[in-house]
């Protein structure tokens, strides 16, 4: 279908973009990679009055080592995340997760910042940024603020971003040196959304798993941490596949998965326990 009419602005700088958003009505959408927004426009599930296109803003591109953390521009595409040497070195889980998003053509356009700001609980990258204790840097008319991923997501397709704020970058702490990662995704067909996804970061010590961090995709209206499993791993230091499976049995604690045409809530609860065990086992290299 053809999208409804809208006015279009392509700012040349971040300041200009914030000004454009600040001066626009509430019914304005930010266009990043467009791989979620364009389908919504085409199906007329969204019909904003105005679109502010960020795709040309160089300030939102690139990956930098800023000492204690990695700064990843919000306009970094999934394709770039997969290949970036700094991301692979310090935040390998992000590169691995990005490789599971949709298909190559979508990964050429879709961006990390777009995926986070869109806040779709079925998207893969939000759970991974949450797992890695990422922080989101946003710029608005009042200046810059930094929001931990753990308080960024509010509800289905809803974040704490204010109407005139733009997500400019993602900070990942450079504390993941001794950890191994795995993103386990279950979907119906190769390129489709996760029915459930599990992001796992695991630190080994003395032949056992000493610590784990787990983020869940599509197990509620926001990405979630599997805190009960993290605590079980911390207290039991699992050293075998069976012990990791036992720790994963509480993966659905505190979740409220949706029921939809891809699966009922109880199926997702079952699935998240199975996938958490697989993610832990793979990441543990045991």
């Amino acid at each position: 279908m053809i999208p409804a009419k809208f006015s279009y602005v392509r700012p040349e700088s971040l300041d200009e973009a914030v000004q454009a958003l600040d001066g626009a009505g509430e019914d304005t959408k930010v266009l990043a990679g467009g791989q979620s927004l364009l389908p919504l426009l085409r199906l007329r599930l969204a019909y904003p009055e105005a679109i502010v296109d960020l795709t040309r803003l160089g300030e939102l591109r690139g990956v930098r080592d800023e000492g204690g953390h990695l700064w990843i521009g919000s306009g970094t595409t999934h394709h770039e995340l997969i290949r970036d040497p700094l991301v692979r070195q310090h935040a390998g889980l992000l590169a691995q997760t990005a490789a599971t998003v949709a298909d190559p053509a979508v990964r050429h356009r879709g961006t990390l910042g777009g995926s986070l700001a869109h806040a779709d609980p079925a998207a893969d990258l939000p759970a991974t940024v949450l797992t890695l204790d990422g922080e989101l840097v946003v710029r608005g008319p009042g200046g810059e603020r930094t929001i931990p991923a753990s308080s960024f997501f509010v509800d289905y397709l809803t974040s704490v971003l204010r109407p005139a704020e733009i997500l400019t970058g993602i900070r990942i702490p450079k504390t993941w040196g001794g950890w191994n990662f795995h993103y386990e995704k279950f979907c119906r067909t190769a390129q489709s959304w996760a029915i459930v996804g599990v992001a796992a970061a695991v630190r080994r010590s003395d032949g056992a798993v000493a610590e784990a961090r787990l983020g869940l995709t599509n197990m509620g209206s926001t990405p979630l941490r599997a805190q009960a499993v993290e605590a079980a791993v911390q207290s039991s230091a699992p050293g075998s596949h069976d012990a990791l499976r036992a720790a994963a049995a509480s993966a659905d604690d505190g979740t409220s998965p949706p029921s939809d045409l891809h699966g009922q809530a109880d199926y997702r609860r079952h699935l998240v326990r199975v996938l958490t065990a697989r993610a832990l086992i793979t990441a543990s290299r045991l």
Partner: peptide
Amino acid sequence: TSNCGACTVLLDGMSVKSCTML
């Protein structure tokens, strides 16, 4: 619906779904 890829073209050498761009 951005699923099928029939409309794929190369934009500056990289594949994109031309229905999913303005």
